[in-house]
Design a protein around this nucleic acid. Sequence first.
DNA 1: GTCTATAAGGCGATAGAC
DNA 2: GTCTATCGCCTTATAGAC
Lengths: 212, 212
Amino acid sequence: MLTNKTKAQTKAGKTYQLILDAAAKLFSKQGYHGTSLKEIASNVGMQAGSLYYHFESKEVLMQEVLDKSIQLIYSTVQSEVAKLDKQAGFAELLTAAIHGHLIAILSYSDYTLASIRNYGQIPAAVHKASQFARDDYEQFWRGFIQQAERTGAIREGVDGHLLRLSVFGAMNWASVWFDSKENNAADVEKIAKFQANIFLNGCLPEGEKYGI
Amino acid sequence: MLTNKTKAQTKAGKTYQLILDAAAKLFSKQGYHGTSLKEIASNVGMQAGSLYYHFESKEVLMQEVLDKSIQLIYSTVQSEVAKLDKQAGFAELLTAAIHGHLIAILSYSDYTLASIRNYGQIPAAVHKASQFARDDYEQFWRGFIQQAERTGAIREGVDGHLLRLSVFGAMNWASVWFDSKENNAADVEKIAKFQANIFLNGCLPEGEKYGI
DNA sequence: GTCTATAAGGCGATAGAC
DNA sequence: GTCTATCGCCTTATAGAC
């Protein structure tokens, strides 16, 4: 892994980060195919050809954006979960995980939206580079939800698989409608608390149940 | 509206529909900018230039796909809601609406995924053409959720705005992970019942509440 | 209605000067 | 490290034959 380490040090360069940020911003707004290298270069005050000193191709540039996206999300979630007591139950865990995921995708929306919007419409080889990191993150969610199913922390008959996918949908969709210019960190907190509350307790008045 | 009527009759042509279907399929998988007219034409056994007999531009082709997408969704939802009793309450209405929306987006996923994936990364003029239809559909959801807030069918403190956006996220995200080759209509029914159940009752065991 | 041919321009990527 | 210049290819769209 010496190659990766060397690469990582090189990539810490200032210009490299500026290019990556500009690419993420444009990919998120116009899509991978809708963004030209000329446009990215222009955003950092360069000519298109000069980018090739920092990146070997447009595809690799996208790979880096996808990779950084998942790294940002998972590390933020882990940091939120680490704040919990060791004996924290399922409800606390779910709330912290939702909070972390939303903080990440709404704070670094250039990266996460670039990932969400373009995933599935780029060459398979491009998003395969970040597949392991994605699998790791998914496994974290699978893990604590499966445990909740086993211990009865989740109501009988609730499919943990569909629960995870529904929570992901509600969260990720927020990156589509959330406007970081109009909203702030307090709004992110509000959305996180709302979603945890809804998925745990539902929206019906206390004591009422429907269809179970 | 004579122009539109004439246009609509012309558009009922068989070739027109084949082109529209091929465009939706490719736009959904590769994105608007990642799909060429040559590729669309090839899918219906034509040369790229020949498409211009049926469509005046690639942008108009996309507009038609977006428009058909929202029409399919709203009409399916209305049809599901129409099956309900007139005195049906909020829970029945939400369940029927979720069911209709999921049937539509998972059955016609070429159209709806083309819409979801490309919305926001295409020229503003393109999706403005279907904005009125989208607003109508959104207003339908706003309407019955606001009424539920007023009548107390929704628990005190639950923000109807965030509820609607969360339900939309969970549903629309399903079009990303649902595989219509591996799954069937019974699975769509299962997902719809699950999501209605979760948003109404939550996932905690009966009688348990967290954080309220 | 569909074809072929082509116009006019943008694309990713490379080479060599500085 | 960044520039200019350029290659070869692909794109949307049009014109005219059939």
